[in-house]
Design a protein around this nucleic acid. Structure first.
Lengths: 247, 247
DNA sequence: CGACCGATTGACTATTTTCAAGTGGTGTGG
DNA sequence: CCACACCACTTGAAAATAGTCAATCGGTCG
């Protein structure tokens, strides 16, 4: 069960330098936060922070630790993963444009989030140019990334989707977000999703995902061990899977 | 070729009550706009306002008249339609979160847009709570709608995608946006997209789109005439195309 | 050890795309 | 006014792609 650990302490926050407040000096932060009604809440893997179509609780959230998947689903149970959140990401701001949440947020791993009431968010947005533009910029980046996924889902074949997903994982700027634990070996990237979840992200079945990955392992393009993956031959992967530079 | 018609006159703007300034009184609007550097620009059908990967011109745009499609494409030419804009919609705010446009905007019909420099937009956002929250709300609605499309593209079968597209067109709140011309017959909705564009929106080929539509015409679920479409039997359409209430 | 769960693999089926030919409407030039 | 080209759309047949169903593997945990 989720439980509230404490009121948040922004100055000592583990994601202070990746949050929407990263641009604030210690002084401005201290001044801004004194009226915040923050709460740090823990979730176990598999637990949901909120659900699609639930009434918004008028809070925004910042992910402090762990990974969260944002999903949408059809009445018959089919699920689409919309995006995966990493430490520092802002979410739950849906309430700024509608009464109900548009999607579900579920912990992929044990998580800690910091809840900030929307009125507090609006207040700090009014008072701090930097925070305001940081929030705006994050929301627009979410939009850009979602548009990119639209192209992935609508225009690409299964192998192309899967290859570009793996190649994205391999990008160094992503890796550090995923390998949150002891493992810092630069070659191996933690796979944040199960086969079935990868399918749900890319609009494929678990079998299709499994087949291509197995095939590419046999061909020596990638390696996998204990939930970690390594891209051995990015060019081979691209050539095999990506028509005309689609990845 | 696009050409600049005039400086915009917000007070007499045809989309005044649907724009980001709709909540402002005439007085506040007059006060706000006096320093705006607006320009009304016309485009013929098929012309583009800006292109994916182009450097942003640091402007936002409001669509005054006509329809615009927002698209993304792959290097090999495959195209995905991201959304269709109607009068009053704000676009081009990409520049708030990156140097390059993330997508292409192309006129589907003859269009008029009003260009507003981003610095002006930021200024009015700072000074007007209402405009600020209107902009924020629009951007988040764009995000919600794009997430919805992700579910459409990733989780649904061809017939389900197409049926929910047609049923959406049939919704009364959409119709008025499309039937901008003389035709006000409530039954018939103007189809804003060609078969090939519908395919590009839903991640299908033109043939697949054509086949299902022909089939549903034969079965009497829909009618079509001169670019207008009518949904005769929404229930039949749902039953035929939509597994377990997927539409 | 046995139950369970995620992943793999094979065989088969369904869906969608591809390729190709044809239709029908519209507009242009002779 | 007709012949023609052009374009969007339709239709059919074949091929490719991805999904379904089912059996099995391999690791983990009680």
């Amino acid at each position: 069960m989720p439980h509230i650990k404490s009121k948040g302490h922004c100055l000592s926050c583990p994601v202070r330098n990746r949050s929407i407040f990263s641009d604030l000096s210690e002084d401005s932060l201290e001044a801004s936060i004194k009226d915040f009604h923050t709460a740090v809440i823990s979730y176990d893997a598999g637990e949901s922070i909120f659900h699609q179509n639930d009434k918004s609780d008028e809070s925004s959230y910042t992910l402090r630790k762990g990974l969260i998947k944002i999903t949408k689903s059809l009445p018959d149970g089919r699920v689409q993963i919309v995006r995966v959140l990493v430490a520092g990401d802002l979410f739950g701001f849906d309430g700024l444009a509608g009464k109900e949440y548009n999607h579900t947020a579920t912990a992929l791993t044990a998580c800690e989030v910091c809840r900030l009431p929307l009125p507090d968010l609006s207040e700090v947005r009014k008072n701090n140019q930097e925070v305001d533009s940081s929030i705006m910029s994050r929301i627009i980046k979410n939009l850009r990334q979602t548009e990119d996924m639209l192209l992935e889902l609508g225009a690409k074949k299964a192998s192309e989707k899967l290859a570009s997903f793996l190649l994205t994982l391999g990008r160094s700027d992503i890796r550090s977000d995923l390998n949150t634990d002891m493992n810092n070996d630069i070659q191996w990237v933690k796979l944040p999703l199960s086969r079935s979840e990868i399918g749900s992200l890319l609009g494929l079945t678990i079998e299709t995902v499994s087949r291509f990955i197995s095939d590419w392992k046999r061909k020596g393009y990638i390696k996998e061990s204990k939930g970690y993956i390594q891209i051995i031959d990015a060019d081979g992967l691209k050539k095999a899977a990506c028509t005309e530079g689609s990845c």
